[in-house]
Design a protein around this nucleic acid. Structure first.
Lengths: 244, 244
DNA sequence: TAGATTGTTAATCGATTAACAATC
DNA sequence: TAGATTGTTAATCGATTAACAATC
C-alpha cells in the first residue's frame, strides 16, 4: 500500500501514465488497418473477443493496448468501429498529412517512395536527396533529386520531421548527422547499421537481409525425428498432455 | 536435482536444448555483419565487452545468444573473428546459396529483388511471378515474369524454399496458399495482413506503413506538462483518483 | 601465475495473458 | 434484469542483464 506523499518507485512520464510499449504501438497500426477494413464492410461494433478471432491477437492484449491511451469501449457492448478507427488514427497522427523526405535515390529508395500506399496513408514525399553527382538534378517521380549536403537548407522550407534513409551503410551515419541537423525527428533506416542519434530522434530499422537470414535459419528448424519425441508430450505426472 | 526418468517441465527441443528465441536470431544476423566488417579490418580477436562497446548490444546478451548454439570463445581471450563469422553464417545457412522466388512484380517487388545486396549475401532470385496478364511474359531483371498459378509447377524445377511476397493485401492469402502448395517453407511478407500458414511454414512480416506509423506517433511523444501528474500517484482510499 | 574473459545460473525487467469486479 | 464485455489488477511467461565460478 502506498503512503500518501510517498514517491512511487515507478517513475511516471510527465502525463502521469506509463508510456506505451513499442509493441503496443506496432499493434495499434495493425488495429487501425483492421478497423478500416471493418468500417468498409459496414461493421458498426466489435468486441475484443471478435478481434482475437479475426486477427489472432489476444483479446486482453487488445484491451490493454487501448488502455494506455483512454477508455474506448462500452462494457457489454464492445467498441464502435468508426470511432475507434479514428481515435487510433489520431493517436498515431496518421489522421493528418505527414511530410517525408528520402535520402538515397537508388533502387530501393526510389521503389519505396514510389509505393502508392504512401500517399493513400497520407505520407507525403516532399524532397529527395542523394550524394551522387550523376543523380543530382535528375527527376525522381515528380521531384528533382537534390544534393544531400543541402538537406538542412531545403528542409527549412518543408519542415518535414520524418526521413527515409536508403543509403549504403558506409554513408548512413554521416547522412544521419545531416538529417538531425536538418530538424528530422524520426528516421526509417534501411541501412544495416546502428545509427547514433540524440535521444530526441527516434529510429526504426528495417533490414531486408536480416529478415531473409532469420527465414533462412528456419529452413531446417525441424530436426530429424529422434525417436523420443513422444516423451515430450507427457506432463509431469507422466500423463499424456494435450497435443494441440 | 532431476530424478532419472522424470519429465522436465521445460520442454526441450529434440536436440536437448531450448530453441533460440527469435530476437536471438535477429541479433545473430547483426553479429554476422559486424564480424564481416571486423574481418575486413583485419581484426583477429574480439571480446564480448568490445562487441558491446561497438554495437551497443549488451555483452551478456551476446554471450547468451551464442550459447544457444555452441561454445565459440576462449575464456581470457575472446572470440576469433573469422571463425565466429563463419560459424554464425553456417547457423543461419547464409554460407550457401539460397534460392528465392518473388511474387508480385510491382514497384516494391521489383525494387526489392533488384537490390544488389541480395546477390552479395548469396540470396539468388530464380523466378518471378505475377497475376497481371499485362506483366506475364515481360522481363524483370534477367527473368521472365510468369503466371502465379504456375508457381507449383515451376518450383518443381527450382526447389526454392523462400518466397518474397509483394502483392496487394487482397490477394496475399490466396497467393500464400499457392506458395505453400509449391513447397515454400519461408515467406517474407510485405502485405500488411496476417497470413494463415501451416506450422511448418515460417513467415516474417515487413510493413513499411506500420513502421512509418510508429515513427509518426513519436513526433509528439513529449506531451506538455500538465502540472498535476504527482496527484495521480495517490492511493485508492478516497484520495485523488486517476483523472485520465 | 595473475588478469582477463568466457559460459551459465540467478536476478531482474518488461510484456503477455488470465481473471474478475465494474458496468452497459 | 440477466448476459455480455469492458478496463484493470494480478499472475505468468519470456527475454535481458548481472554475477561469478571455470578456465585460458
Amino acid at each position: 500500500m502506498m503512503i500518501v506523499g510517498e514517491v512511487p518507485n515507478v517513475t511516471p512520464s510527465s502525463n502521469g501514465k506509463p508510456p506505451p510499449p513499442v509493441p503496443t504501438l506496432e499493434r495499434l497500426a495493425t488495429y487501425h488497418r483492421f478497423l478500416v477494413d471493418l468500417s468498409h464492410a459496414q461493421v458498426e461494433t466489435i468486441s475484443s473477443a471478435e478481434v482475437e478471432r479475426q486477427t489472432g491477437i489476444n483479446a486482453a492484449q487488445f484491451r490493454k493496448d487501448l488502455s494506455y491511451f483512454a477508455q474506448f469501449g462500452k462494457p457489454g457492448v464492445g467498441y464502435n468501429v468508426v470511432d475507434l478507427r479514428d481515435r487510433i488514427a489520431r493517436i498515431l497522427k496518421i489522421d493528418q498529412d505527414q511530410k517525408l523526405i528520402l535520402v538515397g535515390a537508388g533502387n530501393l529508395g526510389s521503389a519505396l517512395v514510389g509505393y502508392p500506399g504512401l500517399k493513400e496513408h497520407r505520407f507525403n514525399l516532399v524532397a529527395v536527396f542523394d550524394n551522387n553527382y550523376g543523380k543530382i538534378g535528375r527527376p525522381l517521380w515528380n521531384l528533382e533529386i537534390m544534393d544531400v549536403t543541402r538537406v538542412k537548407e531545403v528542409n527549412q522550407q518543408h519542415r518535414a520531421r520524418i526521413a527515409i534513409l536508403a543509403v549504403p551503410s558506409v554513408s548512413a551515419q554521416m547522412v544521419t548527422d545531416l538529417l538531425v541537423a536538418a530538424g528530422i525527428r524520426a528516421i526509417l533506416n534501411f541501412a544495416p547499421v546502428m545509427l547514433r542519434v540524440p535521444d530526441t530522434v527516434f529510429v526504426r530499422n528495417v533490414s531486408f537481409l536480416q529478415e531473409l537470414s532469420v527465414l533462412s535459419y528456419h529452413l531446417s528448424a525441424d530436426p530429424p525425428f529422434d525417436g523420443l519425441s513422444i516423451l515430450r508430450e507427457l506432463d509431469d505426472h507422466g500423463n499424456m498432455a494435450e497435443t494441440d
